[in-house]
Simulated assay, not measured.
Amino acid sequence: MSESTEASRPGVPNDAAPIKAVPVRHYGRWIAGVIILFLAFIVIQSVITNQALKWPVVGSYLFDSRILHGLQNTLLLTVLSMVIGIVGGILLAVMRLSPNPLMSGAASIYIWLFRGTPLITQLIIWNFLALAYPRVGLGIPFGTTFVSWDTNTLITQLTASLLGLGLNEAAYMAEIVRGGIQSVDGGQLEAASALGMSRGKTLRRIILPQAMRVIIPPTGNETISMLKTTSLVVVIGYFELMQVVRTIYSQNYETVPLLITAAAWYLFMTSVLTVIQYYIEKHFSRSSSQATATQAKWGSRMLGFRFGRGREGGVSQ
């Protein structure tokens, strides 16, 4: 169509200007942003200028040797409890997915029992286990006992804390691991069986690397939650961060500054764990992509194909 014909069409101006796009103005967002900034300014100003918070006292106790010792015990509890929880969770998840009804039933009862009772109750039970079992030992049921120990000596406050936190965490980790394993396509297991791989090797080399993409985020959340949950062992008197804080403010009555000190350390440690979790998730996300590519390569080999460049630059078969 010629320019003269286009210009003679009705409704088309001869000097048509290009359309000018006008961005939509979101006044509600600006108003909400201003309100949030105003409220944040009020809160920060109140926290900084409030004399009752006693920031100099907070600073003097932040690196106190007793606080640092309690912090060390808190980190120790967190690491050991999560190791117990993760190892136990993997075993329970494998048992729960087992075709053996006894193994599956035992794992289900364990998960039901430890998830169905409060953690603080479990801690107290482990700490006072000697009231029900003064001695624990190994031997023949209803027969001879070969070796036994005094329960109070065997289960210290640290042991009771680890048993309560770790065994409880294992029940939750079992469901996380089970969900991650079940998220992997069942065809992966069939392909591995066709290649002659054992179930254990299939779990290590194929299933778990792909399931980690699903397992890692909630595991990171459980670790951060465990760091804060360790404060519950204060009920059995173990010397961790909150117990140290309670001991100090019961002597000098500086309750608020010492609680702020504990909160500051918890915030710092959870921030560090959050950064670590981010990089671990990033690593396993990349590993999962590589594992998927490897499975595609193996699947092609099963069908009789092999990858490589032919003499003509194409894919040889």
Rank of each mutant, 00 (worst) to 15 (best):
M226H: 01
V244M: 03
F239H: 15
T223R: 01
V245T: 08
Q243W: 09
P257N: 10
I216R: 08
M226W: 08
T247C: 04
Q243N: 11
T255K: 14
T230M: 10
N252S: 06
A263C: 13
V235A: 14
E254D: 15
T230C: 11
V233E: 02
Q243S: 13
T229H: 13
T229L: 12
Q243I: 01
I224A: 08
M242H: 10
P217R: 08
T219E: 14
P218K: 13
G237Q: 02
P217A: 07
E222H: 14
I236Q: 00
I236R: 04
G220S: 02
E254V: 08
Q243E: 10
R246H: 11
T219W: 15
L259C: 09
L241R: 09
T247D: 12
R246K: 13
Y249N: 05
M226N: 05
G237I: 01
V244R: 04
L232P: 02
L227W: 14
G220P: 01
L259N: 03
I216M: 14
S225L: 12
Y238A: 03
A262L: 05
L259Q: 08
L259S: 09
A264S: 09
Y238R: 05
P218S: 11
L259R: 08
P217V: 02
L232N: 01
A262W: 04
R246F: 09
I260A: 04
I216S: 05
V233W: 02
Y249V: 00
Y253L: 07
T255P: 12
M242F: 15
M242G: 03
P217G: 06
E254K: 15
N252V: 07
G220A: 01
N221V: 00
A262N: 06
T223H: 10
Y238V: 07
V235S: 12
L232W: 00
E240V: 00
T230S: 04
E240Q: 07
T247A: 12
V256Y: 13
Y253G: 12
S231M: 09
T230G: 04
T219Y: 15
M226L: 13
G220V: 10
N221E: 07
M242C: 07
I224F: 12
P217T: 02
P218Y: 15
I248Y: 12
T229A: 10
V256G: 03
N221K: 14
M242R: 06
Y253N: 04
Y238F: 12
L258K: 01
L241P: 00
T247I: 05
T255E: 14
A262K: 09
P217M: 13
A263V: 12
N252C: 04
Q243R: 10
L232D: 00
P217H: 02
F239K: 13
